[in-house]
């Protein structure tokens, strides 16, 4: 039996990231689901995401 078949033969508990509609569909099917609001940093803009990452690194260096 493959791992994926194993997975679906168990009770499914889901953490959903991003699009809330996936979580809502699972809720309708009575599947336990926790939705986490998430979107790519800086709305997915790679330049600003890089700036943010560099500034966040400074905090980590100090810690």
């Amino acid at each position: 039996m493959s791992a994926i078949t194993d997975l679906f033969s168990q009770e499914i508990r889901v953490i959903n990231l991003g699009l809330e509609v996936f979580a809502q569909n699972l809720e309708r099917l009575c599947v336990p689901v926790i939705h986490m609001q998430w979107s790519p940093p800086a709305g997915g803009d790679p330049h600003r995401a890089a700036l943010l990452a560099a500034l966040a690194d400074e905090d980590e260096e100090e810690a």
Partner: peptide, 16 residues
Amino acid sequence: FEQALEAFSAQRQPAR
């Protein structure tokens, strides 16, 4: 806020 982030990063770069 996007403009300020750019300015802050530019100001920060020489220090780094």
